[in-house]
């Protein structure tokens, strides 16, 4: 397999990498770029722990090839805070105890941010359906939904 050279932008930084033609973006992020915030919970798009955005669109990075993102703009959980300023969602998740083990948290935060950019004032049901592809086994989702709403309210007010 001949490796491919890919140029991309990740969290605002220009990034170049080489990858195998069949290598998922998730493996590139984790193993080649050491951006381990995105997690592999399943590798089949069923758990959402590897959520990132590519050109503004929420995707599972396990279902994207590294080769496909040449020229693309990618954001990951590592790019969510602004320097030492946490994003309102990040603060709301800590304040609201919206995670226990925390392994699904990066994916949920990335997905929730994508939701609030599209719909700043979602109903609980809309949040639940939007996040249906993000499995959490610890919390029963209750505090996650509440934290998203706290952050949404804060962002609407800001």
């Amino acid at each position: 397999m001949k490796s491919l050279h890919v140029s991309t932008t990740i969290n605002g930084d220009p990034v170049e990498f080489i990858c195998d033609p069949d290598e998922p973006l998730l493996d590139v992020l984790r193993n080649r770029l050491h951006l381990t915030g995105a997690k592999e919970g399943c590798g089949t798009g069923d758990c959402g722990a590897c959520s990132v955005t590519v050109n503004g669109r929420l995707v599972c990075s396990c279902l994207v090839l590294g080769a496909e993102v040449d020229g693309a703009v990618i954001t990951t959980i590592e790019g969510m805070a602004d320097g030492d300023q946490l994003h309102p969602l990040q603060r709301a998740f800590i304040d609201g105890a919206a995670f226990q083990c925390g392994v699904c948290t990066p994916g949920i935060l990335v997905a929730a941010k994508a939701l609030l950019e599209k719909n700043p004032d979602p109903t609980d049901e809309e949040v639940r359906y939007w996040l249906a592809g993000n499995l959490c086994r610890c919390t029963g989702y209750d505090k996650i939904i509440a934290a998203v709403q706290v952050a949404a309210a804060e962002m609407r007010g800001a």
Binding site: R30, H34, L35, T36, G37, A38, K39, E40, T76, I77, E78, M80, A81, L86, L89, Q90, F93, I94, D95, A97, F99, G102, V103, T105, P106, L109
Partner: peptide, 22 residues
């Protein structure tokens, strides 16, 4: 109900889980 000590690591993707060690 104070904030947990590992909170920031876990919302920023910095917390090191089993598969994150090299």
């Amino acid at each position: 109900r104070p904030n947990r000590p590992d909170g920031v690591d876990k919302v920023t993707g910095r917390a090191q889980y089993g598969a994150d060690a090299t």
